[in-house]
Computed example of a mutant assay.
Amino acid sequence: MKRSAIPAILAVVRTYLRNRTLGGTYFFTVNLAERQGNTLLTDNIDLLREAFRRTLAEYPVAMDAIVVLPDHLHCLWRMPEGDDNYASRWRLIKAGFSRAMAKGERQSASRLRKGERGIWQRRYWEHLIRDETDYARHVDYIHYNPVKHGYVAQARDWPYSTFPRWVERGVYTEGWGVGNDVRDMNWE
């Protein structure tokens, strides 16, 4: 590769195009800016829940599944028909949580210049769900995540998850997430 091509390639890589489908179902991963050893989300779960409540009361979605871990969260949203504006919802959730938190986090020079807090990563990951298999795999991923990260031995033991709702619906057994009871573990 010619050295002169590198800036052009980097410009393309930096431009991330989000998938926008009206009424789509999306999987999201949202991270704290400083993840290593950070327990901000679970330590302040009520503030996070309130940020979600306020935002989704005004801009509803069907939140089918969620797990909140100490430093990141995963969730699955079904957007209302004719609506693809998940970006505004995430902006409001992050801002609501950040406003409720006492200041004192580390802020980069860039964040200071822009007047931003240093709580959340600026970006987040979204994935448009393609079909029922994709949906099931992402719901499994959400509910297995606390086990994957070593916080608990079984999904049922993590308190910040929709796993109990899915057990009530009969999708999972209480002991799901241990050994061979987990569906296809190749999520990547």
Rank of each mutant, 00 (worst) to 15 (best):
R123A: 12
G24S: 04
M1W: 09
G170K: 04
R137W: 05
L41C: 00
V67D: 06
L76Y: 00
L47F: 12
R183M: 06
V68K: 07
A62N: 14
W176F: 00
G104D: 01
G175I: 00
A5P: 00
W77C: 02
Y59W: 14
D131S: 06
N19P: 00
Q154H: 14
I6S: 03
G115L: 02
R183T: 11
R113Y: 02
S108N: 01
R165C: 12
L10I: 14
D64T: 11
E34P: 01
C75N: 00
L92S: 13
V30H: 05
R111I: 00
V178C: 07
N19D: 13
V61C: 09
R54F: 12
N44W: 11
L41V: 05
H138V: 02
E116F: 11
L10G: 09
R165G: 15
E168S: 13
G23K: 01
A51P: 05
A153F: 08
S108H: 04
L92V: 02
A109S: 11
F97W: 08
H149M: 09
A11M: 04
L10E: 13
A51D: 05
Y135L: 15
T21H: 13
L32R: 08
C75H: 10
R130E: 10
D184G: 15
D134L: 06
E168P: 09
R99G: 04
L92T: 10
V178S: 06
E116M: 10
V30T: 12
S110V: 08
H149W: 09
Y151Q: 11
K148C: 10
E116L: 13
Y141R: 07
G115Q: 00
H143K: 01
R35G: 08
R14D: 13
Q107L: 12
Y124P: 07
R123F: 10
K94E: 03
W166G: 02
V182N: 01
R122D: 14
R122Q: 13
R35D: 05
W77Q: 04
R137N: 13
V152L: 09
G96C: 10
L92C: 10
F97K: 11
V68D: 03
V61Y: 04
S110N: 10
D83A: 06
L76G: 04
N31E: 12
D181R: 15
L73W: 14
R14Y: 09
Y124R: 09
R123I: 07
R137G: 08
G115N: 00
H127L: 05
W125M: 09
S161F: 06
R53A: 09
W158N: 02
R122P: 03
R3H: 10
R123P: 07
D184C: 10
P159D: 08
G170I: 01
R123W: 06
T42E: 01
A57V: 06
M101G: 03
T162C: 05
A95D: 15
K148D: 12
R18P: 05
Y16P: 04
I93L: 09
V67R: 02
R111T: 00
W120R: 04
G24Q: 06
R137I: 09
Y144V: 03
I6G: 01
D46K: 13
A100L: 07
W187D: 08
F163D: 01
S98Q: 04
H138P: 07
N145A: 08
W125F: 15
D140P: 05
D157L: 12
D46H: 15
P146Q: 09
T29W: 02
S98W: 03
E34N: 13
N31F: 07
T39D: 12
Q121V: 06
P70V: 04
L32A: 03
